[in-house]
């Protein structure tokens, strides 16, 4: 099973994900939205490729730049 298929919000759980997030979609738009989610997940498949431990996220706290409020 691919990693994205295990994600709680994946395609198979379309209705569950909507309910969990408290969202509604008009009946006549449900298939179109479901198709959009499918296409999005297809594009995001590249994110399943494993990365090295040292590849850290781009967005990290920058205490020296702009973090002062």
């Amino acid at each position: 099973m691919a990693a994205n298929e295990r994600d709680a919000n994946s395609l198979g759980d379309f209705a569950v994900a909507l309910r969990r997030n408290g969202l509604t979609i008009p009946e006549e738009r449900r298939e179109i939205m479901r198709d959009a989610v499918e296409k999005m997940q297809a594009l995001l498949k590249v994110l399943d490729d494993p990365l090295a431990y040292e590849d850290e996220p781009a967005v990290l706290p920058r205490y020296d730049l702009g973090a002062k409020r």
Binding site: D7, N9, V37, L44
Partner: peptide, 10 residues
Amino acid sequence: TLGAFVSARQ
């Protein structure tokens, strides 16, 4: 609404 279908892992 598409944002509801992106996981934390992604």
